[in-house]
Amino acid sequence: MTFRQTHLLGIEQLAPDEITTVLDLADEYVALNRSHDKHGDALKGLTQVNMFFENSTRTQSSFELAGRRLGADVMNMSMQASSIKKGETLIDTAMTINAMHPDLLVVRHPHSGAVEMLSQKVNCAVLNAGDGKHEHPTQALLDALTIRRAKGRLHRLNIAICGDIAHSRVARSNLLLLHKMENRIRLVGPTTLVPGAFAELGCEVYDDMKEGLKDVDVVMMLRLQKERMDGGFIPSEREYYHRYGLDAEKLAFAKEDAIVMHPGPMNRGVEIDGTIADDINRSVIQDQVEMGVAVRMAAMDLLARNLRERRAA
C-alpha cells in the first residue's frame, strides 16, 4: 500500500499505485457504510474544516459525512457569507484557519490554483474539493471506483466524456486519472465546449455524439455549466439536447452493457434524458454518490496517516 501525498490537490500528482491504494481502501469503506454500525475511528481526535468559497451541497455533505463516520470533528464554513466579503485575502483567511489547528482542510474555490496556493500556507492536510476549471480529484476517484466496481477493471476501457468539457474540472481530473490507468478517452461535444487543445492531451475528440459513443464501455455525462458561461457557447438548450443530450437513440451506439454516469446535479432534458438517468440497468449515478462518501473517507484516512507520521517524526 502506497500513498505518499501530504495533500490531495489533484490527480496530476498521484501515481497509479496511489490511485489503486485509495480505491482499495474505499472499497473497505463501502462495506462499512453498508453495515449497521457505520463508525470507524481513523480520524478520531482530528478536526476537519470544510471551506467552500463556492456553493455546494452535494460535495460538502459528502465530505462532512465522510469525516463524521470516521470520528473527526467537522466544522463547515460558508466562505461566501463571511470574510471575503469584508475584503480579506485568501492567504489571510488561510492563516486565520491555520491558527485554529485544523488537521484536514477541505477547500473549494472558484479560481484555478487557489487551493494549491492555500496549501502552501497551512500546516494541515489540504483536500481540493474543486478549484476553478482545474481539478476535482475526489470526484475523479469516486468515478474510478464506480467504474471499477461496475466493470470489474479500471484499464483498457473505452470511455466517452460528453458535454461541457471546457468549463469542467471534473473532466480534467477524470481525463488525468483515466489516462494514468491506461484507458482510451473520447471527448464528445460541440467544439465551443471541447476546444482543440484537448486533442493535445491524448484524447480523441468528437463533435458527433453518435460517432463518439460508438462501442464505448462508459458514458460519462457532464453538467452544462450555465453559471460559468458568458457569451453563449451553445445556441440554445433545445438544440444542445437534440445534438448532445444523452437519450436512448444515442446510447444505443455504445456497447450493450455500457454504463451511464453523471457527477450531478443533473439538468434533465438538457444533457440527459430523465428515463436514462433513472434506468437502473444502465445508470450508476446513485452509485457515484455512494462511492463519493467512501472515497472521501479513504482519502482523508490516508492523508491523516501521513500527517500523524510527519508529526511524530
Binding site: H134, P195, A197, F198, E200, L201
Partner: peptide, 12 residues
C-alpha cells in the same frame, strides 16, 4: 495563452 498548458491548468 490558449493551448495544452492553459487547458491542463484550467486558466482562462
Amino acid at each position: 495563452t490558449s493551448g495544452k498548458f492553459a487547458t491542463l491548468k484550467g486558466l482562462p
